[in-house]
Simulated assay, not measured.
Amino acid sequence: MEIVNIHQAKTQLSKLLTRVALGEEFVIANRGVPVAKLSPYQKTITTPRTPGRLAGQIEIAENFDEVDEHILRLFEGEEA
């Protein structure tokens, strides 16, 4: 990944964006220290949540929230 200093990024932003649109990525640095990454924008595709969509397909045990004493002791470091 190519490192570009801030001055170069400011003066050549249009050229950098053209290259980014083609898939390249750049690290923008301030005095040699990386501060940002310039990469192609990726739109995240999300679907709206549909409550009840899995109704009847999942079964939750009656005791799902009961504490397992053995696991609790392991977390507390009482058992190895």
Rank of each mutant, 00 (worst) to 15 (best):
K37Y: 03
N5G: 07
K15V: 10
I60G: 04
E2F: 07
E78F: 02
D65R: 06
T18K: 15
G77V: 00
E66H: 10
I28A: 02
N5R: 09
E76S: 02
T18Y: 13
T11S: 13
Q42K: 12
T47S: 09
V35K: 08
H7A: 15
S39M: 15
Q12L: 13
V35Q: 11
I6F: 13
A55N: 09
F75C: 08
T46S: 12
E76G: 00
P48V: 01
H7C: 13
R73A: 07
G56E: 03
I6A: 14
M1V: 12
R53I: 13
Q57R: 10
V67Q: 01
V20C: 03
R19N: 03
E59R: 11
T46E: 11
H7D: 15
T50I: 10
V35W: 08
T18P: 09
V27G: 02
N30L: 15
E76N: 08
R73D: 07
L72T: 08
T18W: 13
P51K: 01
A80D: 06
T50C: 05
F75R: 11
A21K: 12
N63I: 05
T18G: 15
D68L: 06
A21Q: 11
H70C: 08
R49F: 15
A29L: 08
P34H: 02
Y41C: 05
K37A: 08
A9V: 00
E59F: 03
P48W: 01
V33F: 12
Q42P: 01
E69P: 06
Q8C: 12
R31F: 13
K10Y: 11
L72E: 07
R19F: 05
V20D: 05
K43E: 08
L38E: 04
E62V: 09
E62T: 12
A36L: 08
K10R: 14
L13Y: 10
A36Y: 07
T50A: 06
K10W: 10
R53W: 10
N63E: 12
G32N: 01
E25G: 11
Q57W: 04
Q42A: 12
E78A: 03
Y41P: 03
A61F: 08
E24V: 03
R53G: 02
K43S: 11
E59A: 13
I6V: 14
E59M: 08
P48G: 04
Y41N: 09
E59G: 09
S14D: 15
Q42W: 09
P48H: 03
P51Y: 00
T46W: 02
Q57E: 11
F26D: 00
G56H: 02
Q57D: 10
L72S: 03
V20W: 02
A80H: 04
K43L: 05
K15H: 13
